[in-house]
Design a protein around this nucleic acid. Structure first.
Length: 881
RNA sequence: GCCCCUAUGGCGGAACUGGUAGACGCGUCCGACUCAAAAUCGGAUUCCGCAAGGAGUGCUGGUUCGAUUCCGGCUAGGGGCACCA
């Protein structure tokens, strides 16, 4: 006799040990079966796992376990994105070395992940902060450097003038350093860049072939790459306005990039970025302008900050000549919303058809002239005042362009200006431009992969010889002062130049952590290879990743950088691979209510008791009974204290319950709200499924029956229920629709319960016993990817000696599912008026006759003759009167 | 500011490719079992209406025999914006 209740704690521990002892999830590179690589974005070892991790890894594990059952050789590895700022912040706060902090976190989180019962091959675990990992990254960097895929150039950073340190964008709050509170400045540093722009076209074009990526991610990447076709136009600066700038270089003309040359007759001003060379030249003769530029720099380097700041400009006094009218002069402003990184860092402003330009002229009173008239609007009365018009239309107020479409006008302007020559060069040329910029990877920080180059006064930049790799981080560093400890280290950075032997210095910048995560999926294929990032044959066998799963917050940067790395590695012969991730799924966050007391202090969910119902819910502190306000539902975060610790949930309810709840209810791409009721509901299901399996076992008996020659009606019905559920669950798992999958499992279990309840006392006929045994096996297989521990317990109860984790997926017999009768909905004028059940192969005339004979249909038709009858096969009959 | 996404009962959500809106779960209500409670099991549950029937998928307009689904205009919430990971 089986126990009434399923003992979660005992069983889960037992099965995890059994899997580990039998090495069930160990993956071999020489397995002859078809491969399937499923990967979840590896975690940053922040300290403890959170519910977002549970959700992410539960999803990946469903896919891994399902594919394994379907006969694939599955690679499902785990590792640690272990470099990054939090380790340095912790070092400063607690006086612990980043490595010690990081590895301690990894140990904690590994144990937590292991308690989830994930089917991971832990023998392939990697950490990016391990020199055995970053050694290969340094080799890749040097290889890319030799191949011209790396460059050095100047770029701006946020500089904290009190702490004397470079700040990350998130460390700049309202233009001030987070620690010192000092107003942030911009500094230019010479930094290392990976030339991702070499691949702009391919990165863009290949998006079309990523058909197993969410459309929104492809769209975001397309916009990010931002290919545009436009015109470079040289504006002559009126010599009469140059004045004291006369001696400065490049003050005779201003080159701009525009995608809207058609609006040239709507131009009201020119604007240049505060970092534009012309702005710098003008500022040398105008202290007020220099002060204005300093002001602009205090916003920081983030585009969001620059573009949301109030639009401000400074008139340089320079005037540019309109290309089509030498009498027409346009004022040249330095403006805080022009970005030096895009185009030439200079624009002409047409307020009528660009909102930013319009906001600008409204602030400076420069006037608006519309030049594109929307269809159906009278050009004589069309005015633009607060909202710019960026739609289609016909050219107006534009002399020789009048009456043309936008496209015709663009072409006409380009054609005319290409033909004009100034100083021996065309005044304008067509140009394809990209928003995408090269990837700056230099970080002025300790806890990252050292950039393996040496700076020699005589020889310049010298790569560290391969035999000396990896360049490891020195361990004797302190974090008692801000800034990069590598920079102030007494010995580490001083070395002999590998080329001339003279005194030289190591590069003290380390790499952006996005570099670490741009090739880790390659390393997992062959993680212990000492000679190469991965053996080429092994990498080519496993890659691409068949299903990649992670947060949508990585939709652009991480995924684009990984796509770049794949291309660079292919070019250098490491891989034969177009794209790293054939399938991508972006899952939603885990969110929770927030609680706040009268003093504005946040309260954690475990400190709060919630009472009430539909009318209103109230929350009280458990200790004092004080009422706390129930706030909005937000992403779980430490600062709002609305987190739930997976350890507590797993200890109370078990890993299967935690996994099940994270997969049920909400669609995986959407946010899921953590509720206590939801977890309890999931827990009840584990017990329900266990009871059902026990009942099946009692009906089937100790000996599993052989397949009978024929099935009676009841047995046929049970088989139909089981096979229909199996077919649907297969489809839903493959589409990663875990919530629908779980709903189908509930329906399946409910239906089986009803059938079991209808069974009379034993003995039970052989065909029924067979049908129940088969249905039980199918049910266990269906929930095994989500609740693997319970599934093993049930599998054993049903009399199997093997692991369900190693058993093949049952074959759905789809011929059992089709019924001979179909139900049509009968509508009159699109409104449902009845239903009719009819043979699947009934003809149109027969269906129409049956529909018109229905009571509800006749009443609704009210003796009017049918004008038209629409029949959608197997679905609907609509009578139009 | 720019780019992207989302919106369906009391709640989470389902609805194949434009074809029965509300599957499944939670909650609530009623009932069974029990001395009682818990657990479990059965039934009801979009709204208005006694009913017939009507209304209904954030708001608004359109296309269609038919719109949660397609198109236009809004509103609200969320993600990303290049040094958080």
């Amino acid at each position: 006799m089986r126990p009434e209740r399923y003992n979660v704690r005992e069983s889960e521990a037992k099965w995890r040990k059994a899997w580990a002892d039998a090495q069930v999830f160990r993956t071999r590179n020489d397995d002859p079966r078809a491969k399937y690589y499923v990967l979840e974005m590896f975690p940053y070892p922040s300290g403890r796992i959170h519910m977002g991790h549970v959700r992410n890894y539960a999803m990946g594990d469903v896919v891994a376990r399902y594919r394994r059952a379907r006969g694939f050789n599955v690679l499902h590895p785990m590792g640690w994105d272990a470099f990054g700022m939090p380790a340095e912040n912790a070092a400063m706060q607690n006086d612990t070395h980043p490595a010690i902090w990081t590895y301690a976190n990894i140990d904690t989180m590994r144990a937590q992940l292991q308690s989830m019962g994930l089917s991971l091959d832990w023998s392939r675990e990697i950490a990016t902060c391990d020199p055995r990992y970053y050694k290969h990254q340094q080799k890749l960097f040097l290889d890319f450097l030799a191949a011209g895929l790396v460059t050095r150039k100047k770029s701006k950073v946020n500089w904290d003038p009190i702490d004397h340190t470079v700040l990350a964008n998130e460390q700049v709050i309202d233009g001030r350093g987070w620690r010192s509170g000092a107003v942030v400045e911009q500094r230019e540093l010479t930094q290392w860049f990976l030339k991702i722009t070499d691949f702009s076209d391919d990165l863009l074009a290949s998006l079309d072939r990523l058909d197993r990526w969410p459309e929104k991610v492809r769209l975001m990447q397309r916009n990010w790459i931002g290919r545009s076709e436009g015109l470079m136009i040289r504006f002559v600066i009126d010599p009469k306005t140059v004045g004291q700038l006369a001696g400065e270089p490049d003050v005779n003309e201003l080159e701009i990039y525009t995608t809207r040359p058609d609006t040239l007759f709507g131009a009201k001003f020119m604007a240049i970025a505060p970092d534009h060379p012309l702005a710098a030249a003008a500022a040398r003769h105008d202290p007020a302008l220099a002060a204005f530029i300093d002001d602009c720099r205090r916003v920081g380097t983030s585009v969001a900050a620059i573009e949301t700041a109030e639009k401000k400009g400074y008139d340089t006094g320079l005037r540019a000549l309109h290309p089509f009218d030498p009498e027409w002069r346009l004022p040249v402003y330095v403006a805080n919303f022009i970005l030096m990184d895009y185009g030439t860092g200079a624009i002409f402003g047409c307020p009528a058809h660009d909102q930013r330009d319009l906001d600008f002229v409204n602030a400076y009173g420069l006037g608006v002239t519309p030049v594109v008239c929307p269809p159906g609007v009278d050009s004589a009365t069309f005015i633009v005042d607060r909202v710019a018009y960026d739609g289609e239309g016909v050219m107006i107020n534009s002399r020789f362009l009048d009456g043309m479409t936008i496209e015709e006008a663009k072409e006409e302007v380009a054609r005319r200006l290409e033909a004009v020559s100034i100083g021996g060069r065309q005044q304008a040329r067509r140009q394809v431009n990209y928003k995408l910029r090269d990837w700056g990877i230099s970080r002025q920080r300790y806890w990252g992969c050292p950039i393996p180059v040496i700076h020699c006064e005589a020889c310049g930049v010298v790569p560290v010889p391969a035999s000396e790799l990896p360049v490891t981080l020195p361990e004797d560093v302190t974090f008692d002062q801000p800034g990069n400890p590598l920079d102030r280290h007494p010995t580490w950075k001083h070395v002999a130049c590998p080329r001339c032997g003279g005194p030289a210095e190591r590069e003290t910048d380390t790499m952006d952590v996005f570099v670490d995560s741009s090739w880790y999926f390659v390393r997992f294929t062959d993680p212990r290879d000492e000679a190469a990032p991965a053996d080429r044959r092994i990498a080519d066998y496993w890659l691409p990743v068949d299903q990649y799963i992670g947060g949508v917050e990585h939709a652009i940067l991480h995924l684009l950088y990984s796509r770049f790395f794949t291309r660079a590695m292919r070019q250098r012969g490491y891989l034969d691979l177009d794209e790293p991730f054939a399938g991508l799924f972006t899952q939603g966050m885990v969110v929770h209510e927030t609680y706040r007391d009268a003093r504005g202090q946040w309260a954690a969910p475990e400190e709060v008791r919630v009472e009430g119902d539909a009318e209103g819910r109230k929350a009280f502190l458990i200790g004092s009974g004080e009422e706390v306000e129930i706030g909005p539902i937000e992403k779980m975060s430490k600062s709002k204290r609305n987190t739930v610790d997976p350890d507590d949930i797993i200890a109370t309810y078990g890993a299967d319950t935690a996994r099940w709840f994270m997969l049920s209810d909400s669609p995986p791409e959407r946010d899921v709200i953590w509720t206590e009721a939801g977890v309890q509901g999931a827990y009840k299901q584990t017990q329900r499924l266990w009871r059902l399996i026990c009942e099946i076992e009692r009906v089937v008996g100790p000996a599993r029956p052989a397949a009978p020659a024929a099935f009676g009606d009841e047995a046929r019905r049970i088989r139909q229920i089981a096979h229909a559920a199996l077919a649907k669950i297969e489809d839903e798992i493959e589409r990663l629709r875990f919530n629908v999958c779980i709903a189908t499992i509930y329906e399946f279990a409910n239906a089986l319960s009803a059938e079991i309840g209808a069974i009379d006392a034993p003995p039970v006929a052989d065909d029924l016993r067979y049908a129940f045994a088969e249905a039980g096996d199918i049910l266990v297989h269906c929930f095994a990817p989500m609740m693997p521990h319970l599934a093993e317990e049930c599998w054993e109860a049903l009399g199997h000696a093997s692991f369900v984790a190693q058993s093949p997926w049952p074959v759905a017999d789809r011929s059992l599912i089709v019924s001979s009768e179909v139900t049509y909905v009968a509508q009159v004028n699109g409104k449902k008026r009845g239903e009719l059940s009819i043979s699947r192969d009934a003809g149109a005339a027969e269906i129409e006759r049956a529909a018109l004979a229905l009571d509800g249909v006749m009443r609704a038709m009210d003796n009017r003759p049918p004008r038209k009858v629409i029949i959608v096969p197997n679905r609907i009959v609509n009578v139009v009167v």
